[in-house]
Amino acid sequence: MMNAGQVDFNYLEGKAGILRKHIIKMIGEAGSGHPGGSLSAADILTVLYFQVMNVDPRSPKDPDRDRFVLSKGHGAPALYAALAEKGYFPVEELWNLRKINSPLQGHPDMRKVPGVEMSTGSLGQGLSAANGMALAARVMGKNYRVYVVLGDGETQEGQIWEAAMTSAHYGLDNVTAFLDFNQLQIDGPCAEVKSPLPFFEKWQAFGWEVMEIDGHNVKEIWEACQKAMTIKGKPVMVICRTIKGRGVSFMENEVDWHGKAPDREQLEKAMAELERGVHRHESKNSHP
């Protein structure tokens, strides 16, 4: 186990900034995609891929590698950006997102992109797959860990709660889930569309160890991962307070930027802001 002094958090913040620029540029090039939920999850993915997970792009099928499942598959640009930066494929490939004959499908396809561990996109299914990978580690006597990112709106899917029971019932302490709690879904605030709240008490009642952090603070994300490794006998849910569209002022907390590409002018403005590291909001959500 590492101590915080060994971790270069400035590096991680810089890396998250690079991921955000990739996200905006690739969605701009594609002309469609989901910037809001990609930007809100960018810091979580950065810490996982560049500090926490035991993965090596030179051997993407290593049976002992840690696994990552992006259950909220529409956040694919964030995952692709992380994989490209990590070295799974050239960064230039990112500009082919959503284009014909590109491996970078609108939602992650494990058969087309090295480093993608599970095909997702139809919401609610990623936690079940993560549980399967975690159970497989037990059957095969392996020590790898499985990380999964869920959307908050996504938890309206019943399968999430079936899977939540499975993780707890089988005591899957090798599963660490992150809830990207940005409070918005396509049709509006989650609490108004059909409230999935309260999250903290629900996951706790389902038998999970629950933590709550600022999902844009790389140090808090790293600390949550470290703490998760010490929890035995049950899965860990890290509720991450996030801002949808984080890093681009006109996208932050704006529900319309769930699934819309910036035009040329917006793209330039967004890139300039990301260059300067501007944030309009702080991630201080109400109690999850």
Binding site: R67, V69, G124, S128, M133, V139, Q159, T166
Partner: peptide, 24 residues
Amino acid sequence: RFFNMGVAEADMMGTAAGLAAAGL
């Protein structure tokens, strides 16, 4: 090597997918 998933068929299929993705 047996997992009862309870009355939760959707989760059973998703879990099976994860088991297969890991090589079982």
